[in-house]
């Protein structure tokens, strides 16, 4: 297969970026999207040009490092996958593919397609945990947890922190990311104890970092590679309003 790639290139955080057009040919349909970029990069290195930078690590859809905005969709034209799980058979021979970095003021571009997602770490640091230190905890079976709650908590906990929700949202809102953590911990008895402080601190940090607000468009849910539902956002709203009023 042959493709025309229109890729965002930007030297550094401070420089102005631009789109550059590349061509790749003889790509196998079984090739993954990132492997296709590897092939492009090999071509560039052959010419002693700088390869296109993009984040990636596990290449099996779980670390959350990869994330490209491909033809108008975070993680490209397939459902429930990360960019690294996207394969070229999803495209037509001869397609032009536009590749952009995640856009959003809290996710500034570092270089080319690499963005800085430290904002997510800061939100978690603000309270996305149960404040338990190592040791001195009760036996694991001391507090039974209804299976339904454990399952719902696990649904939310599946978040990989890739940022596709923010990238997809027209408001650049991080509500799904925050909701996933708040909802996970709020559904477990261990997490209830500091549920109030947690949600207040995390939302405050989210606002402070300049993420937009949620208008319930559902774009995040549609693009979440782990299929996390916006019902968790409702849960976040509920937790927040409750924490502030009562």
């Amino acid at each position: 297969m042959n493709f025309t790639l229109k890729i965002w290139r930007q030297e550094s955080a401070k420089s102005k970026g631009k789109f550059v057009v590349y061509n790749v040919s003889n790509i196998s349909p079984d090739c993954s999207f990132l492997e296709m970029l590897d092939i492009l990069n090999q071509q560039l290195i052959d010419k002693f040009e700088k390869p296109v930078c993009f984040d990636h690590d596990c290449r099996e859809g779980i670390c959350g490092a990869c994330g490209l905005y491909i033809n108008g969709r975070p993680h490209g034209p397939d459902e429930d996958i990360t960019t690294c799980q996207l394969h070229m058979r999803r495209f037509k021979d001869g397609d032009t593919i536009v590749i952009e970095p995640w856009r959003g003021r809290p996710f500034p571009v570092i270089k080319d397609l690499v963005v800085d997602r430290n904002a997510f770490d800061k939100i978690i640091a603000a309270g996305g945990y149960i404040s338990v230190s190592t040791g001195g905890v009760p036996d694991a079976n001391a507090i039974p947890i209804p299976r339904e709650d454990a399952d719902l908590a696990m649904d939310a906990a599946a978040c990989i922190g890739c940022g596709a929700c923010v990238a997809a949202c027209k408001n650049t809102s991080a509500m799904l990311f925050v909701a996933a953590k708040v909802s996970q911990l709020a559904r477990l008895p261990q997490g209830r104890i500091e549920a109030k402080e947690r949600v207040i601190k995390m939302v405050a940090k989210m606002d402070e970092l300049g993420f937009g607000s949620c208008t319930n468009t559902g774009a995040c849910e549609a693009e979440c590679p782990k299929n996390i539902s916006i019902s968790h956002i409702a849960k976040l709203n509920r937790e927040y309003i409750k924490a502030k009023i009562f």
């Binding site: 338990v132 905890v137 039974p144 908590a153 696990m154």
Partner: peptide, 22 residues
């Protein structure tokens, strides 16, 4: 054994049975 206790206390959503136990 301490690891499992620690992780449950941290909110790791391990699979559970209908009894609510691990």
């Amino acid at each position: 054994n301490n690891i499992i206790d620690q992780c449950v206390a941290q909110g790791v959503p391990f699979a559970r049975e209908y009894s609510g136990l691990l």
